[in-house]
């Protein structure tokens, strides 16, 4: 029986953070991964504070979290075969995240066709109805990203990444 998309995603899930040095540096965690969907978390950390007066994490953490979660949703939306590159990312910062709380990003690929994927995402710190930020992003499978995906596939097959 051929592997289902969810089975493929489950197999690739450990690479979502471990395969990205920047995601590791920020301590990002993958909370959920499904067809065209991804949930990721940025745990609150004092070394990521942007404004020492308030203790609020830097907006860049939200930017990187949303970019990563959107990219993973786009990857899944494109069938988990091609690694897309970000074309553009638009973020509305609704309010500062509460100091001490993790930030959670829920991303959904609303359309993927050919080489392009469109993603919407919301970041919150516990209550999804009271977002910290929302994002809208477009991704594209490019030549360098396709070559990179090919190298990942070969590395997985040779056992180097397992």
């Amino acid at each position: 029986m051929p592997e289902s998309l969810q089975e493929l995603l489950n197999r690739l899930a450990p690479l979502i953070v471990d395969g990205s040095p920047h995601a590791q540096a920020l301590g990002l965690a993958l909370d959920g991964l499904g067809p065209a969907r991804a949930t990721m978390r940025a745990p609150y950390r004092e070394d990521l504070i942007g404004d020492p007066e308030t203790g609020v994490m830097h907006g860049g953490v939200v930017t990187a979290l949303l970019d990563h979660a959107c990219g993973v949703a786009a990857f899944s939306g494109l069938g988990a075969k091609e690694t897309p590159a970000t074309l553009d990312l638009r973020i509305d910062y609704m309010r500062p995240a509460e100091p001490g709380r993790d930030i959670i990003a829920e991303a959904e690929c609303i359309r993927a066709h050919g080489l392009i994927a469109f993603v919407r995402a919301t970041a919150h710190d516990g209550d999804e109805s009271d977002p910290v930020a929302t994002a809208s992003a477009a991704f594209m499978v490019t030549r360098p990203s396709r070559e990179a995906a090919e190298r990942v596939r070969k590395a997985i097959e040779s056992g180097a990444l397992s």
Partner: peptide, 24 residues
């Protein structure tokens, strides 16, 4: 720095890191 890399096999810097840098 290596910890700015998003995808080590390209290798390209993380879009979030470049975006955050431009915000700063």
């Amino acid at each position: 720095e290596e910890h700015l890399v998003g995808n080590p096999l390209v290798p390209a810097m993380h879009g979030g890191a470049v975006g955050a840098f431009m915000e700063i």
